[in-house]
Design a protein around this nucleic acid. Structure first.
Length: 275
DNA sequence: ATCCAGGCAGATG
DNA sequence: CATCTGCATGGA
């Protein structure tokens, strides 16, 4: 995709390959806001404002290089979309609905906490708690708050987390933050999918589904297929009646191979489209 | 009132 | 190994 970088912006020309709305609304990110004619994205300590003008996308930010990587601007999603559409024609209309989705490369710690909170929860409440964590424990950046670091979050009280609505996840957030204080994410990113999965599963509040989401949305792993209640519904629609998530995941991984991550997100978004 | 939301941990066969 | 249960909270 063609883009230009200035000191405080990214300009994307001819932007059909990037739907801001679908990319942000598809459920992979929790800390963003929609305004009248712009979206604001918060990631770790960074912020970006996204607008469409005359068919171009303008991303205003103090850290353009961070968001080039974050929005995965160097990957050709038109090609990916065409490829899966021809490879799996029975899903054409479902894929079409989410055309323009880009799989984000999000901050690992923020993504880990976000998806720990996501367990048995709904997206509105997840977003609310994630912003509350920023507001209460994150570094004040002036006009907004950064997401708290592992060390910052490791030192808050379980009581105060529960007061913000974390419920029974409060001790998971605390224990995982403590475990991640000295982790080398560079090292994690070099692991194979299986190695990384094994590591993530040692964190409190992280099971297979949450680990898959973390690997997909923060580590750009493609050979994962997060199975939640929505994907269960998709599976029962397109494949067969099956309640066992382990089997569903195995079958979907076998069917979609290295297209799994991108396909999963398109199918998830399509399934939730009237929400 | 009951069920559900991007499930997980811990206990029990 | 597989299956079962409790779990905070708020909206439908």
């Amino acid at each position: 995709m063609n883009y230009k970088i200035t000191k405080n912006s990214i300009i994307i020309e001819n932007s059909q390959e990037f739907s801001i709305k679908h990319t942000l609304d598809c459920g992979q990110i929790f800390c963003y806001e929609q305004n009248q004619n712009s979206y604001i994205v918060y990631s770790a300590s960074e912020k970006a404002v996204l607008k469409e003008q005359n068919g171009n996308i303008i991303i205003e930010t103090n850290n353009p290089n961070y968001f080039v990587n974050y929005f995965d601007l160097n990957t050709n999603y038109t090609q990916k979309h065409n490829q899966i559409t021809s490879a799996y024609p029975k899903f054409t209309s479902a894929f079409e609905f989410g055309k323009g989705i880009r799989i984000l490369k999000q901050d690992p710690f923020e993504t880990i906490i976000g998806f720990i909170i996501s367990a048995n929860n709904n997206i509105k409440r997840i977003q609310k708690l994630m912003f509350a964590l920023r507001q209460n424990y994150g570094t004040n950046m002036g006009e907004y708050h950064a997401f708290p670091t592992a060390s910052q979050l490791a030192n808050v009280s379980e009581q105060s987390l529960k007061a913000l609505g974390a419920g029974y996840r409060a001790p998971y957030i605390l224990q995982t933050s403590q475990m991640l204080q000295n982790v080398n994410y560079q090292q994690l990113s070099q692991m194979s999918t299986q190695e990384l999965s094994n590591y993530l599963l040692t964190l409190k509040g992280v099971g297979q589904k949450v680990a898959d989401c973390i690997m997909l949305f923060a580590f750009a792993k493609q050979d994962v297929f997060p199975v939640d209640t929505w994907i269960e519904k998709v599976y029962c629609t397109y494949f067969e009646q099956e309640q066992n998530r382990v089997k569903i995941r195995k079958n979907l991984l076998q069917t979609f191979g290295n297209d799994s991550g991108y396909v999963q997100q398109l199918l998830f978004y399509s399934q939730r489209k009237n929400m």
